[in-house]
Each structure stands twice: as structure tokens, then as C-alpha cells.
Computed example of a mutant assay.
Amino acid sequence: MEIDLMDETPETATPPVNVERSLEAILMIADEPQTLVSLATALGVPVAAVRQSIERLVADFDGHGEGEAGGIRRGFELREVGGGWRIYVRGEYDDVVRDFVLTQNPTRLSQAALETLAVIAYKQPISRGAIASIRAVNVDSVVRTLLGRGLITEAFTDSETGAIHYATTDLTLAQLGINSIDELPAISPLLSDGSDGFSDGF
């Protein structure tokens, strides 16, 4: 009796996940460090598999990978920050990226970007979630824009929550024509004080 082995494979079976390529795709667009657990959950694979793939990606990006893709040190790196993983531009290329953004993309900031920058300036250091709460809108793309323009920087990462806190840069001071954040003008006298005014919805 001839047995067709193909009949034993369910038609609904899905192909295995390419963990490393999937991690690259997720980490490329992630705005916050991603924990091993969150990545494993997103891909539906064991945490151990994600950990091993992360180690291989780190080595690959550093130019220590095996095979055809290895041997090239990339302009970006996979870095562990605050208990999570995120792709960053390598430190030695910061100036190149900053110059490119400032000279090749000198468009004016949108109203949303200006408002977000104001919140950060007055409330720094402040997390993305707190900014979104104050403005009552999603600020992910705006924060990316401000980071790309060199107007804000990642001040620190909360060790418990993994949330990145942002602060303004010297470039912002230069653009505003001031030497210190202390020289910022007082918030509108219509507000009882800056903190309450922002908390009520800037």
C-alpha cells in the first residue's frame, strides 16, 4: 500500500519563523528597547531562541558574524539598554548623521514638533509616555524627528520601566539664542504654574 506523506501535513501549517530576520525587522522600527520576552511573544518563539539570535545579530553587526554576511562592521549596532534591545547608530557616525540631517533636510518643524519640543524643554528629562499624556496624542514620529534633527537627546533610561527620558541639546539652546534652559521665558500667565498647566494638557 502506497502512502502519500503529503497528506500528513496540515494545509494550514505555517512556515517556520526566520527569527533573526524577523528581529531585524522589528528592531529597525522600534522606538523603545525591546525585552527578550516581548520579542519572543511577538514572534511566538522561545525566549532562548531569541537570546541566541540576538547574540548572533550583535556579532554580525560588529563584523564578527559567520558566513557571507560576516566580516563587515555596520554603521549601526544592536545595544542592550535598560533591560531591552534596540538598534543605534554607532557613536563614531553620530556627527555624519547629524550633519546630514541638518544640511540635507533643513525643513521647518511642524507645529506638533514645536509643541513637543516645548514640552520636553520645560519638563525635561521626560519620557515619551509622559509627553504623549501631556499632549494627548501619539508622539512617536515627532520624537524621532526631533532626535534626527539633534534637537533632543536620550538623557537616560529608567532601569525599572525601560522608558527612555529625553532632554534638549545644545543645538536647541543655540537655535533659541539662549545659554541655558533657565533662560526660557515664563509659561503663560494664564496658567497657575508650568507643571499644572502642562499636566492639564499642553
Rank of each mutant, 00 (worst) to 15 (best):
N138E: 15
L57S: 12
P125S: 07
V58W: 07
A136N: 14
L57I: 08
G71N: 09
E154W: 08
A174N: 00
Y88F: 10
S133H: 04
S22D: 13
R79S: 05
P106Y: 07
A113F: 11
T116Y: 07
H165G: 02
W85E: 05
F61Q: 10
G194A: 12
A42Q: 13
A155D: 10
E24M: 09
T41R: 13
T169L: 07
G44E: 14
E92V: 07
I164Y: 02
A118V: 15
Y122H: 14
G162V: 00
R56M: 12
A13S: 14
P10M: 12
M28E: 14
N179W: 00
V58P: 03
S53R: 01
V47W: 11
E92D: 10
I126N: 05
D182Q: 04
V89R: 10
A13I: 14
G177T: 00
R74S: 12
R79G: 00
P16M: 15
R90G: 09
A121D: 10
E160W: 03
A49Q: 14
L117G: 10
A112R: 15
N18M: 14
R135C: 10
A40Q: 06
E8G: 13
E24G: 15
S159D: 03
E80V: 02
S22N: 12
Y166D: 03
A30H: 04
E154N: 02
T169R: 06
T168D: 03
E55I: 09
A118C: 15
L146V: 00
V97G: 02
G67R: 07
N18R: 14
D193C: 11
E66T: 06
R56S: 13
V137R: 15
A113P: 08
E20R: 15
I187W: 08
R79D: 06
L151F: 06
F61C: 09
R51A: 15
I131Q: 06
L151N: 05
I87H: 03
G70E: 14
N105G: 00
S141E: 09
G194H: 03
E77K: 09
V101R: 12
P33V: 06
R149L: 02
R21I: 02
W85K: 03
T168V: 05
S127K: 02
T145Y: 01
S195N: 05
A163P: 00
A69M: 08
H64P: 00
D182C: 03
E68S: 11
I120C: 10
E24Q: 12
I26F: 08
P15S: 15
D140R: 13
T107H: 10
I3S: 14
E154I: 04
A136W: 10
R149W: 02
S110L: 11
G150A: 09
A112M: 14
L23M: 13
T161E: 01
T14Y: 10
Q52T: 10
T35E: 09
I87W: 06
A130L: 12
S53L: 07
P16K: 15
Q34Y: 02
E80N: 08
E8Y: 14
P46K: 13
I181Y: 06
S53C: 10
I181D: 06
D182M: 05
H64M: 13
T9K: 15
Q111G: 14
A121E: 09
K123M: 15
T157R: 03
